[in-house]
């Protein structure tokens, strides 16, 4: 049970790529720019990118990602179109990709059909679906597995230890620890609780345990990497998405900070 799949990243604890997972909204401000960002991420060798597919009603997201999703919806960013678009990008220009969006888009395309197309594209390591609960996911997990698509499990500060054990056991690719109570883009403050939970999770799984939500600076990322395997950065990067120069600068700062983590 490592992060490995047929198409997925070969990422185990202790490996070298910067333990940093940037989140981008596909099509914000347009798909050419997204391709450019993906290429840069591939060149820097981050271990994965979470590629957000815009959804009209992103209930787990704060204002920054909501606004970016609204902008991106004006482009050809349907789940199926994105798979087609990715297939046209040379693999060397893509980092390992996790598609992140709300369950309705998978449901609407059909989970099995999505998996088949994703596998065929050879570009998708896994999926991150914030509103697919552990319980409702039960009937879909075998489908994702059959096609080698990692379905990432979420743990939050409100998850009981017994429940967290079950979630990490069924998780694939990595474990997503939501570092704060709230939506994306709120400010994370590190507490002893965060450290304790991540430490527990790391004991229960051999998968990398990554912390996301509210990571707004390289300094916080570095602090988290003292006890977690990776950091996921969303709103802070999405905020700069419309200005490539700015985005690249912010991105590099995070790569640098992450590089100084334990990796």
């Amino acid at each position: 049970m490592t992060g490995r799949t047929g198409t997925g990243p070969i990422w185990r604890r202790g490996f070298s790529p910067p333990p940093f997972i940037p989140y981008l909204v596909a099509g914000d401000p347009d798909l050419e720019t997204t391709a450019d960002y993906l290429k840069m991420a591939a060149r820097m060798g981050v271990f994965a990118v979470e590629l957000g597919i815009p959804f009209s009603d992103p209930t787990a997201d704060g204002p920054v990602i909501q606004a970016a999703s609204q902008r991106a919806l004006r482009h050809e960013t349907a789940l199926e179109s994105i798979l087609g678009w990715l297939s046209g990008i040379p693999p060397e220009n893509l980092p390992p990709l996790y598609l992140m969006t709300y369950f309705n888009l998978f449901h609407h395309m059909g989970v099995e059909r999505f998996c088949r197309e994703a596998q065929r594209s050879g570009r998708i390591a896994g999926v991150v679906i914030p509103d697919l609960s552990f319980e409702d996911g039960a009937c879909y997990r075998p489908v994702f597995r059959a096609y080698g698509i990692n379905l990432v499990g979420f743990v939050s500060p409100t998850t009981s230890p017994a429940r967290a054990r079950k979630i990490v056991r069924e998780s694939r690719g990595f474990v997503y620890y939501v570092g704060l109570m709230g939506t994306t883009g709120s400010a994370l403050t590190l507490t002893d609780e965060t450290r304790r939970i991540v430490r527990d999770l790391r004991q229960w799984t051999s998968l990398p345990v990554c912390v996301g939500f509210g990571i707004s600076s390289g300094a916080i990322a570095r602090e988290i990497l003292e006890f977690a395997d990776g950091v996921i950065v969303g709103s802070r990067l999405v905020q700069d998405e419309r200005e490539p120069d700015r985005w690249k600068k912010t991105f590099e700062e995070f790569v640098l900070s992450a590089g100084k983590g334990k990796g």
Binding site: S133, E135, F154, V155, S156, T158, R163, V178
Partner: peptide
């Protein structure tokens, strides 16, 4: 599981599950 036939469920983020 909170279903009426094939309808229903708890499609929410993990933070709300507890």
């Amino acid at each position: 599981r909170g279903y009426f036939g094939e309808f229903g469920g708890r499609f929410v983020s993990e933070t709300l599950m507890s």
